[in-house]
Design a protein around this nucleic acid. Sequence first.
DNA 1: GAAAACGCGCATCTGTTCAG
DNA 2: CTGAACAGATGCGCGTTTTC
Length: 345
Amino acid sequence: MAKRTTSFDVAKAAGVSRSVVSAVINGTAGIGVGTETREKVLKAIKELDYHVDAGARAMKTGVSRCVAAFGDMKNPLFLQVLEGMQRACAERGYHVLISGKGGDERDRFELLDLYRQRRLDGIISLDAISFESREWLDAVRKAKVPYISIEGYAGTAEASSILVDYRESILDVLDHIGAISSLAPVYLDAYLEKPGSNWAERARRSAYERWCLDRGLAPVVHELQAYDEAWMLRFLEELRGRENGKLPPILINWSVSASILYRMAWKLGIAVGKELSVMAGDNTNRSNAFMAPPLGCVEIPYAEMGEEAVRRLLLSLEEPSQAMRPEKLWLKATVVPGESMARER
DNA sequence: GAAAACGCGCATCTGTTCAG
DNA sequence: CTGAACAGATGCGCGTTTTC
């Protein structure tokens, strides 16, 4: 392995001591560096292609400027969270270490080893919505690791979490639907294994019911397995047969199922955006804008959640007094209109 | 009796900090 | 602005113990 350039080499080339090199890089208060000296150091750094050895720095400071991101690689949301984390880290000269092999929960505990091995500054995990492992929380606390969960521990005040107000997201999108259509919207509650299995889905659904009742409308909810094409086909057929003329707008909690709705509507010759209005409760696969017509939805701010998680984490490092005081941060989703709502005149 | 394993102390590595 | 001290893992040297 080639010998790396060290601050010693830079100092020698610039004709100063290593302390000055360090001061130039870190802007250390208390060590005044003249403009001319600074220029010389910067020039030497550039010419020698010097880069700080993060390991050596961490040895002294105890800070690696690196936070771990744990999540399920197969989950497209994780990528968005990483994007936000990366952005927030870059602002402060931090880096993200990606960990987790594929959503296996046992990997999570290996993170704690990694935390010590690499001197990480904290851990952020993208968790399943109902995730609340006591065992993990105890392990984290025992290891004294600064930790923030994204989407997890909604019901535990002892953990810091970044969460989304799913209830409000549905109210917002319903207001959007209500502004366009006079008909009562129908709510499709898609699920993978069983309906209503987590608080977010329950919050969405009850927000829908509340919204309807507040307006004197009768809520209509259908549960379906997220990928059940046959069900969707039957549902649309029935919807078309029953109503005389106008179809009610449909709000579907998951956009993956909305794409199935699109396909089945296409099969039946129902024009989404003209005869049938559809809105989705998420944009998990980020494909809504590319559907025909572009699917309107509420966008869950995953990148922002990652960003906010990093900010909170770094803040807790700077303020050790409140470092371990857990807090919940609720973020708002935004309505993205799309063209899947039929305009009424 | 040779070879392998172990234990201990010590130097090395590199960047930061602080007294001077 | 300098020079010395320091951080903690790593690995080397060297002496001692265990194994075959």
